[in-house]
Computed example of a mutant assay.
Amino acid sequence: MSVSVFVVDDEELIRAGFRALVNAVPGLTVVGEAANGAQAVQSVRTLRPDVVLLDVRMPVMDGLEATRRIMATGSATPTRVLMVTTFDHDEYVFEALRAGASGFVLKDTPPERLIEAIRVVAAGEALLTPTITRRLITEFVSRTAPAHRPVPAALATLTEREREVLVHVAAGRSNAELAESLHISRATAKTHVSNLLSKLGARDRIQLVVLAYESGIVSPAGGSGDTRTG
């Protein structure tokens, strides 16, 4: 699969490093770069890359606002945003996931993991593998009172099995791990996840995780929470 990548970071050396790394991999090509979010939004609208490697903290426009604007453009072949940050506890990252980013990695991520992350996101999947993602969401949600978390009415339409699957998805489990845990086939696990995405109007698994925590279906402590829908 050929994947076009756009690199955004306010440090020129970091952009150069990412560019060299990505261009050295067959099938991956850097089609452009920017030093801040404002430049990125304008260029991405024109170039429509498959994946944007986007720094969180930048001058002029940060990665959060850039993500919102990039995802708001709308396209039959949407650009996926992969956040890259120095901090493993940055609230901006959580907000970026809510804005539509498909995941994030740390800047000191090994090269092979970064390339894998780009491919995962380009394939339309959400990057949930790093445990830091789940910890970040847990920490953020734990500061928000349950009464103030939105509870989508669509949750009432979920079957007991779909709620169970949602809990497993919120724990960061893949379809293969879901199948093993619930003693079902991978195809069935994939079908349940697809049904959740459709019923809850979620873009990807990342949004399912955020929704599970915000609605209280999964508690910040890591277990199942209050599953009431009304």
Rank of each mutant, 00 (worst) to 15 (best):
S2V: 07
S4H: 05
V8W: 02
D9G: 00
D10Q: 02
E12P: 00
A16K: 09
F18M: 10
A20D: 10
V22A: 08
N23L: 05
V30W: 05
V31N: 04
A34K: 00
A40G: 05
V44K: 03
L47F: 04
D50I: 00
L53F: 11
D55N: 03
R57D: 11
R57N: 15
D62P: 09
D62Q: 06
A66H: 02
T67V: 09
T67S: 02
R68N: 05
M71W: 01
A76N: 13
A76E: 14
T79N: 10
M83A: 07
V84Y: 00
D90K: 07
E95A: 13
R98I: 01
G100C: 03
A101Q: 01
P110T: 01
P110Q: 01
R119G: 07
V120W: 05
A123C: 07
L128N: 10
P130Q: 10
R135V: 08
L136E: 10
T138V: 11
E139V: 09
S142Y: 06
R143T: 07
R149P: 01
R149D: 00
A153S: 13
L155Y: 08
A156R: 13
V165H: 08
H168G: 02
S174H: 06
N175R: 02
A176Q: 12
E180F: 07
S181Y: 08
S181P: 04
L182P: 04
K190T: 13
S198C: 11
K199N: 10
K199H: 12
L200R: 12
Y213T: 03
E214T: 13
E214S: 14
E214A: 15
S215V: 08
G216C: 10
G216R: 09
S224Y: 12
D226K: 03
